[in-house]
């Protein structure tokens, strides 16, 4: 399969318009104010996000969408990762892959939001209930839950119990989800692929952002009379950060095209993307803190925000062991 992994002109234009909006409306600095936590900043501009077309990107034109694909969604998810955008933007985009005509128009119009339901055990839809964490679910209408066989939307539970999250800029609530009456269903493994790839893209963007932060600091911060980025110890850390980010981006983009080419093909490429993107975001997050030194360890710096988000996104329906098991059970790489 010969691919071009750089954006097409259309993809680039759309990505740039999203990036410009994020730079204006969702700067990282917002996450130093509690008022923006839990996806509040995103809620405040939800109408603008809908107007951009985010929630109809891969919806067919016949259903009122843009008729694009997961490729375009992944392209913007990478930008969301760089800006630590609320996971609920991703889950709402993914919900458009599941929603029926009763729910979809409201999602596309920006009137309905959908949060991730993160299961604490492997999901079995034949059970009565599932223990889940709801992520940035304040005021959402539905939650999205999936396994390798099926994806479902459920009405958001009303009796969720707030809990404190490792990533304190994100809202986390525990709930027991009644699996009996889904609001929408889609059979097949598509959501596992699509969600894994959207989360991989956000993690890859997170890894790119921390690499860029570390590099900027390396150019600016002076010790022993010269910028610390001129020292090989720092420079080589940065080079490794760039390599990890590049691996995560490249594998995520390749796996996306592979998933689109063979909808029910093997899971290998997707799981490889998820494994490496998670690793890249967490490792780069750690080195970004290290390169920032004492500042990097403080609450007022940005560095910790990226590391915490990396752990959160890595742990959404996934873990290193889960992805490794998928990788070794699969047929192997796409040629």
């Amino acid at each position: 399969m010969i691919v071009d992994l750089l954006p097409t002109e259309d993809q680039e234009a759309f990505r740039d318009s999203v990036a410009a909006l994020l730079a204006d409306e969702l700067p990282i600095a917002r996450l130093h104010e509690e008022a923006a936590f839990g996806g509040a900043a995103e809620r405040a501009i939800w109408g603008t996000l809908a107007e951009l077309g985010l929630f109809g990107l891969s919806v067919s034109e016949a259903r009122g969408g843009f008729g694009c694909t997961l490729a375009e969604e992944v392209t913007v998810a990478r930008e969301f990762g760089k800006h630590l955008v609320s996971p609920t933007v991703l889950s709402t985009m993914l919900a458009t892959h599941v929603a029926g005509d009763d729910i979809l128009p409201a999602i596309m119009a920006g009137e309905t939001r959908v949060a991730f339901a993160n299961p604490l055990k492997p999901v079995d839809f034949s059970n009565d209930t599932a223990d889940v964490q709801l992520i940035d679910a304040e005021g959402v209408d539905y939650v999205l839950l999936w396994n390798a066989q099926e994806a479902r939307l459920y009405r958001a539970p009303t009796d969720a119990r707030q809990a404190e999250c490792l990533d304190d800029t994100v809202g986390l609530a525990r709930a027991v989800l009644d699996l009996g009456s889904p609001a929408a269903r889609r059979e097949g493994p598509w959501m596992l692929r699509a969600a894994s790839l959207m989360l991989s893209a956000a993690l890859a963007g997170n890894a790119e952002a921390t690499c860029a932060m570390a590099v900027e600091y390396g150019k600016f911060r002076e010790q022993f009379g010269q910028p610390i980025g001129s020292f090989q110890s720092i420079k080589h850390y940065c080079a490794e950060m760039a390599r990890r980010a590049e691996a995560a981006v490249a594998q995520t983009l390749f796996a996306t095209l592979d998933a689109l080419e063979r909808e029910d093909g093997n899971l290998f490429e997707v799981a490889a993307a998820r494994l490496l993107a998670g690793d890249a975001a967490r490792e780069n997050g750690r080195f970004n803190i290290q390169i920032h030194g004492g500042i990097g360890f403080t609450y007022e710096a940005d560095a910790h925000l990226f590391l915490k988000r990396a752990w959160l996104l890595s742990a959404l329906t996934s873990s290193e062991r889960i992805e490794q098991a998928r990788i070794i059970a699969a047929d192997g790489p796409t040629a």
Partner: peptide, 25 residues
Amino acid sequence: IAGELATLRAEVAALRSMTALTISR
């Protein structure tokens, strides 16, 4: 052992994807 092999398999896949990205440039 399976975990290590899986990670190696993923990293080799990423090498292929990185090559594709480089060639795209």
